[in-house]
Design a protein around this nucleic acid. Structure first.
Lengths: 203, 203, 203, 203
DNA sequence: TATGAATGAGAATTCATTCAT
DNA sequence: AATGAATGAATTCTCATTCAT
C-alpha cells in the first residue's frame, strides 16, 4: 500500500517539476528556488527532506511514478500491441514536459551526481507497486508473449531493452525539437510501432 | 581540415577524461581539480578556454570524436553489417570508460545544464570531418543500403535511430554493471546484431 | 525565603544538567535538545523562560546552588578546617560531573557570552540564602577566623581567593583526567589541605 | 626552530585578538567579522585555515605564546622569586587584554566546545619552545628549587598548581573589575607574592 | 496551558574568475 | 606566457522564536 504524502512534500514535488518545466537544470536548482516556488519556508523543506538532493530525487521519482501509472492505465484500454505502443508515443508527444522528466530520470540513473546516487537508492528500495518506465515496458511485453511458446529470459531482456530503447530515443528526438510536422511524427510513430511488433513476432 | 590542439588544451582534455574515469561527476568538477590534474596553472586554463563549461564541453567533445574515429577505423575492417555492429559492441565492452563518456555526452546533449548548452553549440558548428556517435551509425547505414532500392528519408532516419537506440541501451546496461558474465554479454550482443540486421532487411 | 520551582522549570534544569553530563557544550546546546530531553514542548519552555540563554544560565545556577548547599551540609559535620577542605575535595572527586558544572559556571562568570552575561545578572541579584562556591569558601573561612584577632578585610579576601583558587585548580586537574591513581589524588589532597591550613595560620 | 607565519595568518591572529579586546565572545565570533577586521577576503582565510575553529584556536594560541615569552623575558631580569611574581602580576595588570586572553585560553582548555577541542589538540602537539602559562610557572619554580634538597615530584606539581592558581585567580579578579584602586591591587599583589614565597619555603 | 510546525535570518564554506607578478 | 593568491557572490543548512490549534 502506498504511503500518503504531506501537503508540504507535494508542494516540493510540484515545485521541482514546475521549475524543470521552466527549463531549469535539475543539477543547479537551489533550495531557495524550490521553496519559493513551493510557497513554503526554506527551513520547512528541511523538516521533510534531509537535504537538497533528496528533494530533487524524490520529486523526480514521485512525478515519474505518477506519470507511468497514468500511462499504464490509458494504455490498458488499447487492444493490441501496436495500439498500445502508439498510445505511449502519442501520450509522450502530448505531454512533452513529463516526457522530458522521464528522460532526465533515466539519464540521472547513470550519472555520478549526488542526486543520481539518491535516485538509484530510491529505485533500489522501491516497492513493487511503484512503477518506473522500465516496469511499464516489461508489463506490456509479458502480456504480449504470455500466450506464446516459452521464450528464453535472455530474449525477453533483449526485447524489453529494444522496445525501451526505441521509445527513449523517440522521446529524445521529440525533446530535441526535430520533429516539427505532424506528418513526420506520425510516420515515425508508425515505423516504431511496426518495428516493435515485427521484432516481437520475429523471435 | 582539422585544427591542431595546443599541449595545454590537450592536457585539459586528458585531465577531464581522467577525472571522469575516476568517477567524478562532470557537473561538479572544479577548475582547480581539472588544472591540478592537468598539471597547469589555474590562470593558464583561462587563456585557452573562456570558462569552466567550455573546458568540460570541449573535453567531452574532443574525447568522443577521437573515440568515434578509432571505432570507425576499426569497424571498417569488418566485412558485413553483423560483424561491424558486433565490433562496436565488443569495443564498447573493452573500453568501458570511453563508453561511459559517450553515454554522458549523449545525455548532456539533452539536459538543461550550461555545459550541455555548450556541447549542443559545439555540435551545431562542428565541421563535417568531426565524427559523433550518430554520424558513425549513419555512415554504416548508408554503406549498407547504398546498393538497395531507394529508401525514403523517413525510413533511414528511423533505422538510424533504432540502431543507435540499441547500441546506446546496450552501453547503458554495461554501465549499470548488470551483464557480468561473458556468456550473457555474448548472447546479448548476438541478439542485438541479429536484430539490427533483420530490421534493415525488413524494410 | 526561597521560591519554589514549577515542574517544567525543574525539568529544564535537569535536562540541561544531563546534556552537560553527556558531554554537550553549553554554548552550542539547542532549545530542541533541551526540551526534548526535558520531555516538554518547545513552546512551553518559552512560557517559563524568556530565551535560551535564560534556560541555560538558570539551569547552571540552580544546579550549582543545590550542589553547594549539599556540600556545605556535609562539610559542616567535619570538625576542623583540614577535614572540611578534605571533605570538599573528596566530594568533588566523587561527583565529577557536578564539579565540572561548577567549573563551567565559574568560567562563564568571566566570559563574554550571552549566557555568561545572564549568569552574572543572576549572581548580582541573588538572595543571601543562595549559595555559590565563593560563598561556601567564605563561610568556612569566617567560621575559622572568627576566634582569632581581627584580620584585615584585604587579608580575608586574599585568603578566600587563595583557597578558592586551589580548590578550583584541583577541580580542573580532576577534569583534565590527569590524576588517575588513588594515591596520587590522596597525596595531592593532603598537600592542598595542609597548604590551606598553613596559609591561614600564617597570617 | 619556530616556523614563520604568513602575513595573512598574522592578520587573522591580530583580528581575533582585537575583536576579543572589543568584548566579543570567542565562541560566537563569525568568519565575516574576523576577515573584515583582518582586512582580507573571506575565502582567503580558508586558504590558511581549515575552518573557523582553527582560526580562533590558533589565534589564541599564537597570542598567548607570544605574551608568555615576553613575560618570561621581562621576568628573567628580576632577581628573586618575590620580584618575579610581582613582575608577572604587575604586567598582567598593565596588559589587561592579554591577561583576559590568557584566562580565556585556560578556560577553553577545559570546555567541550569545538574550539576548545582544537586548542587542546594544539597543546598536545606543541613543540618544547612554545610556552604556555603553565610552562612559565614551571620554569620559575624549577629555577627556584634547583638549589634546594630533592623535592618529590608530587610536591612540585602541587606547588606549580598552587602558584598558577593564585595568579589565575588574581587575573580573574582583575578581569571582574573589582580591584579598582591602586592601593587595593598593590596590597593584594603583596599578599600573593608573599604567600607564594612562604609556600615554597614551607616545603 | 501546552504544543510543535513553520519560518527566515544568519552562519560556514566553496569555487569561478581575476590580475599582479 | 604562466601562475596561483585573493576575492566575494552564492549556496546549503541550522535553529531561536512565534503562533495557530
Amino acid at each position: 500500500m502506498k504511503r500518503e504524502y504531506s501537503p508540504k512534500e507535494k508542494a516540493i514535488y510540484k515545485a521541482v517539476l514546475e521549475l524543470f518545466e521552466e527549463g531549469a537544470d535539475l543539477n543547479s536548482l537551489t533550495v531557495s528556488e524550490i521553496t519559493t516556488k513551493a510557497g513554503i519556508g526554506k527551513g520547512t523543506a528541511y523538516d521533510y527532506f534531509s537535504d537538497k538532493e533528496e528533494m530533487i530525487a524524490k520529486a523526480l521519482f514521485y512525478n515519474i511514478e505518477y506519470y507511468c501509472e497514468s500511462l499504464y492505465r490509458g494504455m490498458s484500454k488499447e487492444k493490441n500491441l501496436y495500439d498500445k505502443m502508439n498510445y505511449i508515443l502519442l501520450s509522450m508527444e502530448k505531454q512533452l514536459t513529463k516526457t522530458k522528466c522521464l528522460i532526465r530520470l533515466d539519464h540521472m540513473l547513470c550519472d555520478h551526481s549526488s542526486t543520481g546516487e539518491r535516485i538509484r537508492a530510491l529505485k533500489e528500495k522501491k516497492t513493487s507497486d511503484e512503477m518506473l518506465p522500465v516496469d511499464l515496458i516489461r508489463k506490456v511485453l509479458y502480456d504480449e508473449i504470455s500466450g506464446k511458446d516459452a521464450i528464453s529470459e535472455n530474449v525477453i531482456t533483449y526485447l524489453g531493452m529494444s522496445i525501451f530503447a526505441k521509445i527513449l530515443c523517440y522521446a529524445m528526438l521529440l525533446d530535441e525539437g526535430k520533429y516539427g510536422s505532424d506528418e513526420e511524427r506520425r510516420d515515425m510513430r508508425e515505423l516504431i510501432c511496426r518495428g516493435i511488433c515485427r521484432e516481437i513476432e520475429g523471435v
